[in-house]
Amino acid sequence: MNDVWYRFSRNKLAVFGLVVIGLYLVCALGARWIAPYDPYEMRVESVLREPGAEHWLGADPFGRDMFSRIVHGSRISLRVGLIAVSIALSAGTVLGMLAGYFGRWIDGLLSRVVDVMFSFPDILLALVIMAILGPSTTNVMIAIGIVYTPIFARIARGSVLSVKNAMFVEAARAIGVGHFMIMFRHILPNILAPLIIQTTLSFAFAILAEAALSFLGLGVEPDAPSWGIMLNEGKNWMEHGWWVAVFPGVAITLAVLSFNVVGDGLRDALDPKLRGRGD
């Protein structure tokens, strides 16, 4: 473990990413104290105010403080990311492990289902699911969770296959340990590394996906300070104030970038063999 941390900490970019994620986390948890204004409060006199002392990042077309909205936006992004990825991670891992461990028709069926889901571009699948569920923050999380489940299932399945016949599994089986115990006690800890890497990278995807769905108007509630919604508004108003279109995008990019570099760093640290393969 120390090894891993050591290798990780030598990657300056990854550490930078970790720090930025930490900052977002602070913003998300302490939004109420950090944000100088109520993110919902509209003030006619502040409409499209330029960035300055009063509004650090300017005000939007409703006179709402952009900085406060972006700070509160980190709550939405991180929460959506956390829950969506948790859904995908748990559902995907369980399905993938079942398929990999039991093989045969379970594997056949699950693999085909995963293949089918992989045949839809993720954003299209998410859009269709959102259309079914209707727009709300909860549904965004579910939709993104479903969309990214197959990736985890595939990774878990592959990893299980690679350790399934290892000595320690055979040994456990020989002394009569049940399937369930074998899977969770013996196999799961040994396939964690790829899952952890994928989890980190999926955070980046989930934040992007939430922003994209909200941008298309099929995401969270319309007055919520979601970065995607702010960007959508910003797009219509950018000629009147560049800041409404620029800052939410910076927030998204920085968050996605951070999770990406941390994911890369983790991959390098957890699996030195893969070093340098940047894809």
């Binding site: 919902y40 409060e41 509209m42 409703f62 727009p135 108007g217 509630e221 319309p222 007055d223 219509n236």
Partner: peptide
Amino acid sequence: SAFPYQVAAAQIVKQNLEEVGIMTEILA
């Protein structure tokens, strides 16, 4: 949701109503 100006108006109406005790949620 196809009518952004009405979604926008609803957000302000929501704020107005909150001040007299009517708590609303917007469904676009």
